[in-house]
Amino acid sequence: MKMDKTHTYIERINRVIDYIESNLEDEITLDDLAGIADLSKYHFHRIFHSFTNESLYGFISRLRIERAATFLLLQERSLTEIALSCGFNDSATFSRAFKKQFKMSATEWKKKHNSKIHQDKNRKSTNNISMKIPKEGHLNVLLTEEKDLHDMHIAYIRHTGSYAGNLKLFKSLHKKLMEWATPSGLTKNPQTKDLVIYHDSMGITDNDKLRISLGIIIPEGTRVSGEIGSLCISKGKYLLCRFEVHKDEFGQAWTQVFRTILPQRGLQTDDGYCFELYPPNCYNKAKETTLVDIYVPIKRIE
C-alpha cells in the first residue's frame, strides 16, 4: 500500500479501536464498526486483521476478558457484576471465556494473583505498569488530591508492542507528535501538556499486544489525520498523585498509588483511562528526575 493509503487506514482502525475500548460493556456490531471505519464490511474485516493481526471478534473478546481480569484485582465487585460491565451476557459465558484464555477459573486466577500481591510480588493495573514494591520503601508523594476533571480532548500517536524501558521509542513517538503539533501552534498553548495513556495491563496482555498512546491536550474540534488520532478522557472524579521520580521509579510510583494510597483513602478504580500527565519543564537535568502527575479514575469502596 502507498504511504498515504496506509496512514488513512491507520486513522480509521485507530478510530475503531478507540470506539471498541470505550464501549466494551455494550453490544458492538460489525455494521457499527464498518461505518466508523467508512469501509464495506468485507474490506473492513480484511484491513482490521492486516493491521492488528487479530480477527475483529477475537480482538473484542480478548479486550473484554483482559479488562475483567484487571477489574478482578482492582475492584470490589462480584464476578457477575464484572462480567456484565465487560460486555458478557451472563457469568456463565464469561467464566467459559475466561478459563479458555487463562487456563483457570476467574476465582482461581484472582486468588493466585492476590496471593502474589500479599507476598510483595508483581501486581498489575489498568495503566499497564508492572508494579513491584521495592525493599527500600515508598517514594515521597508531593501531592495527593481528589479532583473533578472536565472532558479532556487528546491528540495521540499510538504504539503496539513491548515498550518497557525503551526510552528511544518514547522519544521517537514524541518527535512524531511534535512534528504534527508544532506547525499548528498547539505547542505554544499554555494548556498543552504531554501525557501517556496505558491501555492494557502488563502481565495480563501479551507483550506484543500492549498498547500505549503518547499524547497532548488539544482544543475540542482540532482536526487530526493519519498516525495522529484523537480521543476524549471523560469527565469524572480522579485521584491525582504527584511524584518526582528517577527513570527507573515510574513503576514504583504506580504501585504505590494502587497498593497503598487508594486503599488508605477508601477508594478503588473506576472505569476509564489511567494516565500520566507531565507539566511543562518537568525534567530536572541536575537531579535527573521527572515530575509526573498520575491520574486514576476513582469511586468509593462500598
Score class of each variant (00 low, 15 high):
I204Y: 00
T205Q: 08
D206M: 08
N207W: 05
N207V: 09
K209I: 03
R211L: 09
R211A: 11
I212A: 03
L214M: 14
L214Q: 11
L214N: 06
L214G: 06
G215N: 09
I216K: 03
I217W: 01
I217L: 13
I217E: 11
I218E: 00
I218A: 01
P219F: 10
P219C: 08
P219M: 08
P219I: 09
P219S: 09
E220F: 07
E220T: 08
G221E: 06
T222Q: 14
T222W: 06
R223S: 13
R223Q: 15
R223L: 13
R223H: 12
S225C: 12
G226R: 05
E227C: 09
E227M: 13
I228D: 00
I228G: 01
I228V: 15
G229K: 03
S230P: 04
C232T: 15
C232A: 13
C232Y: 06
I233W: 05
S234T: 15
S234Q: 15
S234K: 15
G236N: 10
G236S: 12
G236Q: 09
K237I: 10
K237W: 07
L239V: 10
L239A: 11
L240D: 02
L240S: 05
C241L: 08
R242I: 05
F243P: 01
V245E: 02
V245N: 03
H246K: 15
H246I: 11
K247W: 10
K247P: 01
D248H: 10
D248P: 01
E249D: 11
F250V: 11
G251M: 08
G251K: 03
Q252D: 04
Q252R: 14
A253M: 04
A253G: 08
A253T: 02
Q256A: 01
Q256W: 02
V257W: 01
F258V: 06
F258N: 02
R259H: 11
L262S: 05
L262K: 05
L262R: 06
L262G: 04
L262N: 06
P263S: 11
P263V: 06
P263Q: 09
Q264K: 15
Q264S: 14
R265V: 05
G266A: 08
G266T: 05
L267I: 08
Q268L: 07
Q268P: 03
T269F: 04
